Simulated scan of single mutants.
Amino acid sequence: MSESSSLETGPFTLITVPTIPQEKKDEIAEVFYWDMSCVHNCLIRGMNSVWLTAPHVKPKDQASFLGYCITLIETIHMHHHGEEVTVFPALAKQLNMEHNLEQHESFQGAMDEFEKYIKDVQAKKEKYDGQRTRDLLKAFSDPLVQHLHDEILTIAPEQLLKVDQADLDAMMAGMAKHIKEASLFTTFPFVLSHHNFSEIPEWPPAPAPLMWFARNISYRRYSNYWKFSPWNNKGRLQSYVQTVAA
Rank of each mutant, 00 (worst) to 15 (best):
residue 9 T to C: 00
residue 49 S to W: 05
residue 156 A to W: 02
residue 15 I to Y: 07
residue 135 D to E: 14
residue 232 N to W: 02
residue 202 E to F: 00
residue 236 R to P: 00
residue 105 E to S: 11
residue 21 P to D: 13
residue 239 S to Y: 02
residue 98 E to V: 07
residue 169 D to Y: 08
residue 153 L to C: 12
residue 8 E to N: 10
residue 52 L to W: 11
residue 238 Q to N: 05
residue 15 I to E: 10
residue 103 Q to E: 12
residue 115 E to L: 00
residue 118 I to R: 05
residue 38 C to T: 05
residue 12 F to G: 04
residue 58 K to T: 11
residue 215 R to V: 07
residue 129 D to I: 07
residue 231 W to G: 04
residue 219 Y to S: 10
residue 235 G to W: 08
residue 16 T to S: 14
residue 38 C to L: 11
residue 229 S to W: 03
residue 10 G to Y: 06
residue 213 F to T: 13
residue 137 L to D: 07
residue 239 S to A: 04
residue 211 M to L: 15
residue 85 V to M: 12
residue 199 E to D: 09
residue 179 I to K: 07
residue 123 A to G: 07
residue 8 E to R: 08
residue 158 E to K: 14
residue 60 K to R: 14
residue 239 S to G: 04
residue 151 E to R: 02
residue 56 H to S: 08
residue 59 P to H: 09
residue 91 L to F: 10
residue 54 A to M: 04
residue 76 I to N: 07
residue 30 E to H: 14
residue 38 C to H: 14
residue 127 K to Q: 15
residue 211 M to C: 01
residue 118 I to M: 15
residue 129 D to F: 06
residue 17 V to R: 09
residue 203 W to M: 09
residue 202 E to Q: 13
residue 7 L to A: 11
residue 171 M to F: 09
residue 245 A to F: 12
residue 65 F to Y: 07
residue 40 H to Q: 09
residue 109 G to H: 12
residue 206 A to P: 02
residue 46 G to S: 01
residue 43 L to Q: 11
residue 86 T to E: 13
residue 19 T to H: 12
residue 141 S to L: 03
residue 114 F to I: 04
residue 107 F to Q: 03
residue 67 G to T: 06
residue 14 L to K: 05
residue 233 N to G: 10
residue 7 L to S: 04
residue 141 S to H: 07
residue 108 Q to M: 12
residue 227 K to I: 13
residue 135 D to W: 01
residue 158 E to D: 15
residue 192 L to D: 07
residue 203 W to D: 04
residue 111 M to P: 02
residue 232 N to F: 01
residue 119 K to H: 08
residue 14 L to C: 07
residue 189 P to C: 03
residue 38 C to M: 14
residue 49 S to H: 08
residue 123 A to N: 14
residue 122 Q to M: 14
residue 245 A to C: 08
residue 153 L to M: 15
residue 117 Y to N: 02
residue 192 L to N: 06
residue 83 E to V: 05
residue 222 Y to C: 06
residue 114 F to H: 03
residue 127 K to H: 13
residue 219 Y to A: 06
residue 128 Y to F: 15
residue 123 A to D: 13
residue 138 K to Q: 08
